[in-house]
Design a binder for these strands. Structure first.
Lengths: 239, 239
DNA sequence: ATGGCTGTCTGCGAAAACGCAGATAAATGA
DNA sequence: TCATTTATCTGCGTTTTCGCAGACAGCCAT
């Protein structure tokens, strides 16, 4: 279903410094370059779907991605936002199927490494495997921290958290350089674990307090510090 | 503060088959045996505290442990229950401090491997590092699955989930072989992300439906299948 | 411009969950 | 054993959150 296009960027000439593949030895970087599958996914398309079999892991070369997981009623929940240098599909690695799906938020270029290639690379490159393990460790910390926060926060606090998380993940700028959020009310709700109605209510309230302003239907975080302060009792990082 | 006692069980004579250390080469198992720190922690004592520095990882040889994380109001949340062969402190590995604390639920024996020993063992034993990475991957899946479920479930469903989780983690048996739960209302609440009052209410309701019965203040899951059925629309595993 | 489509906002009633406080039961120590 | 402490249960009023429905605004194609 995805419209996929083969392109050719060798890893050693890739400008993405944070890519995990860079942890491998030069010879292996060459091998991975040759064997990897570089794919372009158009905006709105799935990179992989929930419950699809796990063939390998994706490394984001460029683009913005949302990782989603749908619940019983078919409603979506956004588990994570990912950008350049991040990896995708690692949740499923070692399992049968992907517990989540990944959707391109704009045009995205990813490098796909299949299970066999990955296994060989892990075996031959301690630094690579170790870096990926550390990444998992960090992801686990963040995941549990987040579920701890969400269990305590009110809807308003969760929405503010979501806004800050989005701005930190995607880092867009609106007029006057303030952080800009282009996701829909529903998508914000999917992050904040609530519904679009509540997001609207919170936004109205934040508008009245002049902590956010609108640019069309996009949101500008006018008073970033004020927003951060209102959830500072929980945390200082939003990722 | 902990009352700790040195004992001496060599890894190769340890009956715990699922210990990750078994993934290492025979020579390394010997080395770890010699360098590890085997400790007994008495019931109720901390194995490590939240926010304490990370010196290494603990491997549970025998015993039951609850992993807790306290929130703003000082209330505790139980993140995980762990038993024989499980590891502790891995959440903090790679970070500065432990994001969680670990408390012995009964007398516990653990083997402590410090950071330097671990790093050497990882570097020299691909299978060991790979197994730990897979463990992280699985933990991440479970953590996110759980927070997804908890966002959707009602209080009653979360309490039932907690009961099933406890019985699966600690596997105790009461009279007639039915699963037995010895945790307090407050501890159950700490798992189900609610408070002790609500747990009481749910238990009363479950008693009326004859799905659970009491043995003193302990809980017997009289109708295990019925309980499972009532949350089957979410999941079939509770770990 | 016009009509239709989609996304957003907001008022209202209903449901869920909470917190408190008093009653009751169980466990502990002298 | 009895008294004291701790844990559990339950009723009630309050707060939070939700879901629905109608109003409104912006965007697109004709």
């Amino acid at each position: 279903m995805n419209r996929r296009k083969r392109v050719t960027t060798q890893c050693f000439e890739c400008k993405n410094a944070s890519c995990f593949v860079k942890q491998c030895s030069p010879e292996y970087i060459g091998l991975i370059s040759a064997k990897k599958n570089q794919i372009k996914i158009n905006k709105g398309q799935y990179i992989f779907r929930e419950d699809s079999p796990v063939f390998g892991i994706y490394f984001i070369q460029q683009g913005r991605v949302k990782v989603v997981s749908s619940n019983i009623d078919g409603k979506e929940q956004i588990v994570r936002l990912a950008g350049d240098g991040h990896i995708l599909g690692h949740r499923g690695y070692g399992g049968e199927t992907h517990p989540v799906g990944a959707v391109a938020q704009n045009d995205v270029w990813v490098c796909f490494l299949d299970n066999a290639l990955l296994y060989d690379a892990f075996k031959a490159n301690f630094e690579f495997l170790y870096a990926i393990m550390m990444f998992y460790s960090k992801e686990l910390r963040k995941s549990e921290q987040r579920s701890k926060y969400f269990a305590q926060m009110t809807v308003e606090e969760r929405v503010i958290f979501a806004l800050l998380y989005i701005s930190e993940s995607f880092g867009l700028e609106g007029m006057e350089g303030s952080p800009l959020i282009t996701l829909s009310r529903q998508e914000i709700a999917d992050i904040a674990a609530t519904n679009a109605d509540q997001v609207s209510r919170v936004l109205t309230s934040l508008k009245n307090r002049e902590q956010v302003s609108m640019e069309g239907k996009n949101i500008i975080l006018a008073d970033l510090e004020g927003l951060k302060k209102s959830i500072a009792r929980y945390t200082t990082s939003y990722s």
